[in-house]
C-alpha cells in the first residue's frame, strides 16, 4: 500500500533534454517517482516524491532538480525558532529508523 501525501507541492523538476538515460534515478528513488520511457527518465508519480534528493544528487548530467529536505515538522519548527542541535536522533524518532537499513 502506498501512502499519499499532499498533492502538487513538491519542488521536483526534470529536464529531459539533459537526461542520458542511465536510469540511476529509478534505482535510488524510494518512492518510484520515475519511469524510463524511450530510454529517457520521466516523472510519472510526482506527488509521491518525498524530496529526499537522492535522484538529483546521483544524476551525473544534472537533469534533475529538487530542493532536498527532511519532511519533519519538528525540524522545520526548530529551524524557524532558530534552535539548533535539536533533531535527528536527538529527541525525534527520525525517519526510517524503524526499517532495517544498513
Amino acid at each position: 500500500m502506498k501512502y499519499r501525501y499532499l498533492k502538487d507541492v513538491v519542488t521536483l523538476k526534470l529536464d529531459q533534454s539533459k537526461c542520458n538515460g542511465c536510469g540511476l534515478c529509478l534505482e535510488v528513488c524510494p518512492q518510484q517517482v520515475f519511469t524510463l520511457e524511450n530510454r529517457l527518465s520521466s516523472i510519472t508519480d510526482r506527488d509521491a516524491c518525498m524530496e529526499c534528493g537522492a535522484c538529483a544528487r546521483n544524476c551525473a548530467p544534472g537533469a534533475i532538480y529538487v530542493r532536498p529536505g527532511v519532511g519533519c515538522a519538528y525540524a522545520v519548527l526548530m529551524d524557524k525558532l532558530g534552535i539548533k542541535g535539536k533533531c535527528c536522533g536527538d529527541v525525534c524518532g527520525c525517519t526510517l529508523e524503524g526499517i532495517s537499513e544498513y
Partner: peptide
C-alpha cells in the same frame, strides 16, 4: 511527519 517514509519538506511546510 519526521518518522514517516513519505512526507516531503514542501508538504510539511505547507500543512504547518
Amino acid at each position: 511527519t519526521g518518522s514517516t517514509t513519505y512526507t516531503s519538506l514542501s508538504g510539511v511546510v505547507k500543512e504547518m
